[in-house]
Simulated scan of single mutants.
Amino acid sequence: MLNNKVCIVTGGAQGIGRCIVETFAKHDALQVYACDMNGAAMASLEAKYPNVTVVELNVCDRASIQQFVEKVKSEHGRIDVLVNNAGVTRDNLIEKMTEEEWDFVCDVNLKGVFNMTQAVAPVMMENGAGSIVTMSSVVGTDGNIGQTNYAATKGGVIAMTKGWAKELSRKGAQVRANCIAPGFIETPMTVDLPEKVLHYMRSKTPLGRMGKPEDIANAALFLASDNSAFITGQTLKVDGGLVI
């Protein structure tokens, strides 16, 4: 389905990011670069999939990103897919949120996406094609209590994506940019939540369950592939009907 594409996935160590890496590896990607600060957690990916390369990378480190992108370009001559998945949370009510909590989330979730896309997009434009998939959230489209910083970043990446959809294709390049907005998803971040919280999440979702990482990975696979060749500037909600 990915037709020998060269793919980069940030935040690939666990949860949704890891599932995206595995899904891409299984669907004919030539090479999937699984990027994360926790390299040890990704070691098993290389052992399991010959077309996965683990890269320890901080999306806030612009110099390291540039070196990495140049290395990929020198090895393959192109980058076909970028999935901006790396993200963090530091939740607090607005009156209690610290400047450090605000800055940390903005640095990773918003500037990190900017850093990666700024480095990769020119390579895609040179080659005349590419797909950028950025992880937003229903919190970015509809807000949530105690997540001012997170909501700002997830809404921000949607706005950036719309701009990129116009900017990166203006000279005829088939470079596309889209977002995915997950709802309540079963990940290592949610597994230890109290059952009453999990019940609340399920009860608020019309399909009556939480999503699985595979639900998001399959959406990323679609947007990364040529099956979505006429889709750009969009935000795909994968939330079981949570926000309608």
Rank of each mutant, 00 (worst) to 15 (best):
R202L: 06
V139E: 04
A151R: 02
D103I: 04
M201S: 01
G146S: 09
E101S: 12
L207V: 10
P182Y: 03
V120A: 02
P122M: 11
K196H: 11
C106S: 01
G130L: 00
V105K: 01
A119N: 09
G130Q: 05
V108N: 00
E100R: 12
R202N: 03
S137L: 03
Y200N: 10
T148K: 03
F222V: 06
M189D: 13
E167A: 11
E195A: 15
F104N: 07
A152E: 07
K171T: 13
P194H: 14
K204M: 12
T141D: 06
A219T: 10
K171R: 10
V138C: 09
G128R: 06
F222G: 04
Q147C: 11
R176D: 05
L93K: 11
R209Q: 12
G163D: 02
T190D: 11
A165L: 03
T190H: 01
V133L: 02
E167D: 15
M116K: 04
N127Q: 10
S137V: 07
T98H: 09
I185N: 06
E101K: 08
P122L: 06
P213C: 14
T98S: 15
V191E: 15
P188W: 15
V175E: 11
G128I: 00
G172E: 05
Y150F: 06
G172F: 00
F184E: 06
N115K: 05
E99I: 12
P182F: 04
A173R: 09
T148A: 09
E186F: 09
E167L: 12
S131G: 04
A219D: 04
V197W: 13
V157G: 01
T187N: 15
Y150G: 01
L221R: 11
S225M: 08
R170Q: 11
A220P: 00
S225C: 10
W164D: 04
V139N: 09
V138D: 05
L193C: 10
W102H: 06
E101T: 10
T153V: 01
A173P: 03
A219N: 02
A217D: 01
T187G: 15
D192W: 01
Q147H: 10
K196P: 02
L207P: 08
G130K: 05
K96N: 12
T161C: 14
V191Q: 14
S203C: 13
I94G: 06
V105Y: 01
P122R: 06
V139F: 12
V120Y: 04
G143Y: 10
P194D: 12
T187R: 12
G211F: 02
Q118W: 01
E101Q: 15
K196R: 10
S203F: 14
K171C: 08
A177H: 08
A177E: 08
M160Q: 06
V113E: 02
M189V: 14
T98A: 10
V105E: 00
V138W: 02
A220S: 09
V108D: 00
A219W: 00
E214M: 13
K204W: 00
V157D: 07
I216T: 13
E100P: 04
